[in-house]
């Protein structure tokens, strides 16, 4: 039944990585993304891969689940690789045929770009697999709260996210119900060409929107009745506290970045890319 779906790609197990402060996880993910751009050689990528593997073990998340995150991106990856390969004209020519020229620098660039993309995805999946959406919203709200000075709606965004998460299962169930109700009136959602199928969605979408709006207005009233008046002066039940593992995690990522920078300096230029 629809009730049992898991949302997003959160992998709900208990681990030291899952228990890290979401703010720390967001910041460290960003740091790792920066590190990806500092890599100069395949050795650096190997280091990153080893790190991702290690974290996945600590997080009790199957490594293949993290790798699977790349799959939807395979076309973009191939495209990135090919574009960089063909469109770069600098460096020594390795191969030339008619208008196609492949240079050593182009090859190097396309490998770099594709691998960067891969690690961007791996890093963020690592975060979303181990952090529940609600924790992510919390972390974002707190990290962005200094921006309230320039009227950035950090609290409102987090509240929206949290309400959306609350109502997704409800609306999914409702979709199923309306769909069945219209099928009982002979509606056909499955056959016909694209246009016909799009038109067949109207009896589903209109009631769904009507219902969502009704829910929204009722919820707004219920929130007001419970004294909701924005983020000001609000306390929180979920408090985030930095713990020792957060420090270790930060040190580990710092170490990783240091190694990557070192690799860029120590290894002679052009060695393994």
């Amino acid at each position: 039944m629809l009730k049992n779906i898991t949302l997003g790609q959160y992998y709900p197990v208990d681990s030291v990585i899952h228990r890290l402060d979401p703010r720390v996880k967001i910041l460290l993910t960003m740091a790792m993304i920066v590190a990806v751009f500092l890599v100069r050689s395949l050795v650096g990528y190997a280091l990153l891969l080893a790190f991702v593997y290690l974290v996945s073990r600590l997080a009790k998340v199957p490594f293949r689940l993290i790798i699977k995150g790349i799959k939807p991106l395979r076309f973009i990856l191939i495209l990135t690789f090919l574009l960089n390969l063909f469109l770069s004209a600098q460096g020594n020519i390795l191969f030339q045929w008619r208008f196609i020229t492949i240079t050593d620098q182009g090859l190097r660039q396309s490998i770099h770009y594709s691998l960067r993309l891969v690690f961007l995805v791996l890093g963020t999946s690592l975060m979303t697999l181990t952090t529940s959406p609600i924790q992510l919203a919390d972390g974002m709200e707190l990290l962005l709260s200094p921006l309230k000075v320039i009227r950035f709606p950090a609290h409102e965004l987090a509240m929206m996210m949290s309400i959306a998460l609350r109502f997704i299962p409800t609306l999914l169930e409702e979709t199923d119900k309306i769909m069945k109700a219209q099928m009982a009136r002979g509606a056909d959602f499955e056959s016909g060409n694209l246009l016909r199928r799009a038109k067949a969605m109207i009896p589903l979408l209109v009631p769904l929107f009507v219902s969502a709006f009704r829910r929204a207005s009722e919820l707004a009233m219920a929130m007001e009745a419970r004294c909701y008046h924005g983020g000001e002066g609000r306390t929180r039940l979920r408090v985030l506290k930095l713990t020792r593992p957060d420090l270790w995690a930060s040190l580990a990522v710092a170490g990783l970045i240091a190694l990557i920078v070192l690799e860029g300096i120590v290894l002679p230029k052009g060695w393994l890319l």
Partner: peptide, 20 residues
């Protein structure tokens, strides 16, 4: 349409959070 949070405990907290 009157429960706001994704977890029961946090929903009960909602009014209290608003009151500070």
């Amino acid at each position: 349409n009157q429960l706001v949070a994704t977890v029961v405990r946090e929903d009960v907290a909602f009014g209290l959070e608003n009151l500070g």
